[in-house]
Simulated scan of single mutants.
Amino acid sequence: MNRLLMLVEDDENDIFLIESSEKVGGGLLTVTRDRDEAIQYLSREERYANRERFPIPDMILLNLKMPRKSGFEVLE
């Protein structure tokens, strides 16, 4: 079974690098681009309510210095 990595990142270059490394590692990757989207995903809100389509990640890579609201707010 493949592990699911969730990336919370706003920079397209960083997203590209992680996507490239996950393809090599053979895992699955889901990307959320800001604090609000990450919280919606993890809370099963709005479009992320279906856990079959949006399973709980095994690991989260979280950018702590995102614009508007920081990654620390996701941790709270």
Rank of each mutant, 00 (worst) to 15 (best):
M1N: 10
M1T: 10
M1A: 11
N2T: 12
R3H: 06
L4I: 04
M6T: 14
L7I: 03
L7Q: 08
E9A: 15
E9Y: 06
D10V: 06
D11R: 08
D11Y: 04
N13W: 01
D14T: 11
D14W: 01
D14A: 13
I15S: 09
I15G: 07
I15A: 07
I15T: 12
I15W: 04
F16M: 14
I18C: 01
I18M: 15
E19N: 10
S20E: 04
S21H: 11
E22G: 02
G26Q: 11
G26M: 08
L28F: 02
L29W: 02
L29Q: 05
L29C: 10
T30D: 05
T30A: 10
V31W: 03
T32P: 04
T32N: 05
R33M: 15
R33H: 08
R33C: 14
D34R: 02
D34W: 00
R35L: 14
R35T: 15
D36C: 00
D36H: 10
A38Y: 05
I39V: 12
Q40A: 10
Q40S: 09
L42V: 06
L42G: 05
S43W: 01
E45W: 01
E45R: 03
E45F: 00
E46G: 15
R47L: 13
A49S: 13
A49F: 06
N50A: 07
P55N: 00
P55S: 01
I56F: 07
P57E: 03
D58C: 06
I60A: 12
L62M: 15
N63L: 05
L64P: 12
P67S: 08
K69I: 07
K69T: 10
K69P: 00
S70Q: 08
G71W: 02
G71S: 11
F72N: 06
L75G: 08
L75F: 05
